[in-house]
Nucleic acid binder design. Structure first.
Length: 556
RNA sequence: UGCCCAAUAGUAUAAUGGUAGUACAACUGAUUUUGGUUCAGUUAGUCUAGGUUCGAACCCUGGUUGGGCAACCA
């Protein structure tokens, strides 16, 4: 295989396996979420990895819900996970559930008991934890470890039959209480939980633990490459132990480093806290790193897939610059977003030599980056306009290519104007800017011979419509909130959401009613929010444009 | 003071015993009716000490640093 791009370590393993005709060259991966929360950008990395490997090596990928803990899992999460995976652009081969295998897993457990490799332990959770020892001291057996096979068989059956209350007994593997790997010190296989399960209802009151369910589920499905995150490395020995002792299909587990990203948190627990404690409005709040949040924010599946491709895959702990994600969405939107003019912070501009009552319809391209231009729309022009307050300065610094006394700029798709005067109120605030325009400088038909450095956006006051605009910024003020002293929530950015209730938009934009991304010229990329209604448009800012001028100003 | 994993520019990620490369970020400049885009360029890296070798980011040993492991969570 002659690839220009180098392979990541998983691709290397798979290509070697294919070369050695392992599993007849077959590749089958799986994405195994637990349905107890919403998917986030870190899951996107795993999804792109698993489905991507399946595609690349002409294999398949299953979606398997790891639903072995009914006390935290809900159908709501299953639906959102399926929606998010599909939205990202992936198609699973089979939709499966670990709970589909409960009967089979039970018989696996019986097999282990019969081989004297598992036993029922009546100790409490605390007693078991204590008897396990510590990483530096070996564990000791509880006296239940010596139970006979017959007794274990009987007790385990009674556990299933519901004879015992929650916590009364557990089934444990009998491995090695002095293993340096804590996970091999007689790990728990089954616990009693008299809880309704969203798929098996009340059929079961004992549920398998992750370690006893995951690997066997992989084996049952004949998964060839079971890819998980680094924290499961110590579980691998157990994973292989079960497969060996039960003589199952030899699925192999491989581990990669999970995604971390600057200025956000990624653990389900922390995200749940942000929602429950109302630091954000919902799981799909556009400030959340959840897939649903990113979607609502205006991120495209393509941009997220590109991001996951660019960050790579390795075994090293990482903290990816959120700037890379922002680069990926700008890159994508630059090619597709229609340009529109919107004034967020308005100030009135009067063109003194433009006839009162005159109107012109000016043409402007929807997207200068699209090969064919993607068409045009008309924009009404008149004597009085809204422009951005920050595009005028009373005392402009050098290289300020915008408006100031006697300075000239072009009004995008319209005329070149020159600032002649401005009006202040008693408080000293600038209320109006007075300009003259140059009739020969009309866009597309400019015979004036004048060249100006700056171009600014505008909206005709008489024709402007309004919309609510929600400006988002990073949710946290520090790069790695989870690693800071104290509570991560102390580092929440108080200005992560700024609402502009009344921005002026060009009339064409007021008719939008779809998910099309827009670039508000010179301001950023925006998309209609799900709260938006025909009479009350709401736009979310997906990301700002790169702003080198802001950087220059900041330095001064 | 046990076991396991990792260590390459600011952030990620390649180079698999033979020229340390790519992307983002940063910085210059050109182009531009978006201070956007595009284009050209610059800065900047092998944790450390030994060893093997003609030759080491890569192999070996010790150390250092970071991370993980003792849930009836996954």
């Amino acid at each position: 295989m002659t690839e220009e791009k180098s392979l990541n370590f998983l691709e290397e393993i798979i290509e070697q396996d294919i070369e050695n005709n392992k599993h007849g060259g077959r590749v089958l991966t799986r994405f195994p979420p637990e349905p107890n929360g919403y998917l986030h950008i870190g899951h996107a990395k795993s999804i792109c990895l698993n489905f991507g490997l399946g595609q690349k090596y002409k294999g398949k990928t299953n979606l398997r819900f790891d639903d072995t803990n009914p006390s935290t899992e809900e159908v709501e999460y299953i639906d959102s996970i399926k929606t998010d995976v599909r939205w990202l652009g992936f198609q699973w081969d089979q939709e499966l559930y670990a709970s589909d295998y409960f009967e089979q897993l039970y018989s696996f457990a019986v097999t282990l008991i019969k081989k004297n490799l598992a036993y029922v332990d009546d100790s409490t959770a605390e007693e078991i934890a204590l008897a396990k020892g510590t990483p530096t001291e070996p564990g000791v057996p509880t006296h239940y470890r010596a139970r006979s096979i017959e007794e274990n068989l009987k007790l385990f059956e009674e556990m299933r039959a519901g004879k015992y209350p929650d916590g009364a007994k557990v089934l444990r593997a009998k491995i090695d209480l002095s293993s340096p790997n804590m996970h091999m010190r007689d790990p728990l296989l089954y616990r009693i939980k008299h809880v309704h399960h969203h798929r098996t209802n009340n059929n079961w009151c004992i549920y398998p633990m992750y370690d006893f369910a995951h690997g066997q589920s992989d084996a049952i499905e004949k998964i060839t490459h079971s890819i998980c995150t680094l924290e499961f490395i110590p579980h691998r020995a157990l994973y292989e132990w079960f497969i060996e002792k039960l003589d199952l299909f030899p699925s192999k587990q491989y581990e990669f480093a999970r995604l971390n990203m600057t200025y956000t948190v990624m653990s389900k627990r922390k995200l749940l806290q942000l929602v429950n404690e109302r630091h954000v409005n919902s799981w799909d709040d556009p400030r959340m790193p959840t897939i649903s949040g990113l979607r609502r924010r205006g991120y495209t599946p393509q941009s997220i897939r590109n991001f996951c491709e660019r960050i790579g895959v390795a075994k090293r702990e990482n903290n990816i610059d959120v700037g890379l994600l922002e680069f990926c969405i700008r890159e994508d939107l630059n090619l597709s977003a229609w340009r529109r003019m919107v004034v967020l912070d308005p100030i009135k501009l009067i063109i003194t030599n433009y006839p009162e009552g005159k109107e012109e319809l000016l043409q402007s391209e929807n997207n200068p980056e699209a090969q064919n231009g993607d068409g045009f729309r008309n924009i009404p022009f008149s004597k009085t306009l809204w422009i951005e307050r920050e595009d005028f300065m009373e005392n402009p610094p050098k290289k300020f290519f915008r408006l100031g006394l006697n300075l000239m700029v072009r009004l995008k798709s319209a005329y070149i104007i020159k600032c002649e005067n401005f009006v202040k109120d008693e408080a000293g605030n600038i209320r109006e800017i007075h300009c003259t325009y140059i009739p020969e400088s009309k866009s597309g038909n400019d015979t004036s011979g004048i060249h100006v450095k700056g171009t600014i956006h505008w909206v005709s006051i008489a024709h402007a419509k309004t919309a609510e605009i929600r400006l988002y910024d990073r949710l946290f003020q520090v790069e790695n909130p989870a690693n800071e002293e104290g509570d991560f929530k102390d580092y929440i950015n108080p200005n992560s959401l700024q609402i502009i209730s009344k921005a002026y938009i060009e009339p064409d934009l007021a008719t939008t009613n779809n998910n099309r991304p827009y670039q508000f010229i010179r301001k950023g990329y925006f998309v209609l929010d799900t709260d938006s209604k025909p009479g009350h448009l709401i736009f979310n800012r997906t990301v700002t444009l790169k702003d080198t001028w802001a950087k220059v100003i900041e330095k001064k």
